[in-house]
Structures are given as C-alpha cells and as structure tokens.
Amino acid sequence: MIPYIIRRIIHLIPTFIGATLLAFIISQLVPGDFLNAMRLSPDVRPETIARLEQSFGLDRPWYTQYFLWMGSLLKFDLGQSFGGNQPVSAVITKPILNSLILVVISLIMLYAIAIPLGVFSAVRQYSFADQVISAISYFGLAIPNFFFAQVLILCIFLFRGFTREYFDHNQLLLPVAQMTSSNYNELSSLAKFKDILWHALMPAFVVATSGIAGLTRILRGQMIEQLSSDYIRTARSKGLDERKINYKHALRIAIIPFVATIGALLPGLIGGAGLVEIVVSWPGITPTLLQALTAQDIYVVLGFLVISTLLLMLGNLISDLLLAVVDPRIRYN
C-alpha cells in the first residue's frame, strides 16, 4: 500500500506541471491583458500603460512569465494580483472559505434529503409517492440553478406581498442577497453563525436540488437491485425486521458506488457553488473567478486553478484508497 501511494504521488508531479503549463498557455492565447480596460480610456497617458506593463511583467515573453511564476510557486507563493497590489493568496482565501460554507451546507442537505428519498422510492417502487418523487427529481435535474434561485427570490418577494395583505407583516421570509445582515458586526458569535446559516439556506437548497435528483435516482436503482438479490430474501425468510433489511443490509451495499465519488467531492468543495453565488451575491469563488477572468487578472485565475488541480489529484488518490477499504475485492500492490 505505502509504495503504491508514493508511486502515485510521484506521478502527480508531471501531471501538475502539465496542467499548469497548459493553463498558462491558454491564458496567454487570449488576446489583450489586464491593461486593456485602461487602453480604452480616452485620457490615460501611454506612459502610464508602459509603466504598468513593466511593473506587472506583461512586457516579457510568456515563457519567462511562466518560469518566474513557477519559481515563486515552488516557494508556495501564488504570485501577485494585478488589482490593488494584493498577493493572490489573500485574494482567493476568503472566497474559498465562503464557498465552502455554502457547499458544505448544501452537501448536508443533499445527503439528508436524497438518501431517505432514494431508499423510500426503492422500497415503495411504482407507488404514487415514488412517482411524485421521480417527477420532482427530474424537475430538479432539469432546471438550471441560477434560474431556480431567481424563481425562489421572486417567490420570496411575492410571499411578502401576501403576508402584508393578510397578516400586516412587511418582512421578507428569507434574505435574497449577500452572506450576512447589515447589522452583522453588532451580533454575538452565536447570532453571527445563525445569520450566515439563515442567508445560506436558500442558495444551499438551490445547489442541493440538482444533486438530489441524480443521487435519488441512482440510489433507487442500486437499492432495487440489492432488494431483489438472494441474501435479502434469505434475511427476510429469517424474519429480520424490514427496516434493518433496508438500511443495514441493502443500503450498505447500494452505497458503495457513492464512496468512489467522495474523492471527487474534494475539488467540488472548493469549486464553488456556481452561478447561484452571483445571483444571491454570495462572496464565493465564482464571482471572484469571473471577475478575474473578465479583467484578465491571470494570476488570480491560475491561483484558483492550482488549488483545484491539487485537490482533484488528491481527491482521486483518496477515493481510490477508500474504495480498497470498502470493497474487499480491490487490492493495490
């Protein structure tokens, strides 16, 4: 096992270099650079642009820029953002943590909702409830997250109109934007925690919905397969409790394919929650990355890329190892 892990880690090095080199080349293929916006200004002096090009190193050939960047990367320095004289690590840390909050909450929601639903659907196969769950699942699978978030925001506003008319209560049910309330600083730590949770509820649910659909469907299929197998019939004939059969025997086997995907969750955790973050103004990875992409602040973009490449490689390794733990047929030598 240990030599296998070491071998895998050694293999990661060329992969990592290849990935970053490719990303760097692609970022250089895009026409223009960070100073483009400035070049389109009627009154910025050409001297200003020349001075900034030099200080950002944009006047050097791309391979020189790459080696300089790689050199600093080996010292665990992700480089400097062009905007505001900040190190890239400072620019990307906060968004990564903020996205993590949203993604973790949505993952909890995802498993808490999808696993019972999947089991239920399998046990009550073809019942009316199963069909309703299927229909809702397909709906969740089909609707784009950013659109669903907007629909929910609209519902929250409509609900306010409704409650005002009938209950004389002019408050929004849930916050529609941002991660904290405006009085966040005056709150106690517990209230701060609750405040963020309160703001995360709607976007996290939106992110979870697309996953719920897929997970429920796959788990249902797996469970149905297990429930019709011989060992379940044996267990039933021994007179075992139905709940024990479902959760202790069938589910444990049915869940194995999901373990293999846990490794893929790791980069997903910092991949951010996607466009939902923009719709509800969650200060996460997606808005920061998009801003960096449009401004061509390349080292910020590459910073995110380095982190997610590392996590992807690590995640793959972990899920391979986990698979060996849960499935006795797999051995690494």
Binding site: I153, V176, A177, Q178, S182, V279, S281
Partner: peptide, 11 residues
C-alpha cells in the same frame, strides 16, 4: 453592501 451583480443590488 458589496454585491456581485447589479441584479442582486436591485433585489
């Protein structure tokens, strides 16, 4: 309030 889009500000 720092927002990520003018739509969020409108909300």
């Amino acid at each position: 309030a720092v927002v990520e889009s003018a739509d969020a500000a409108l909300n």
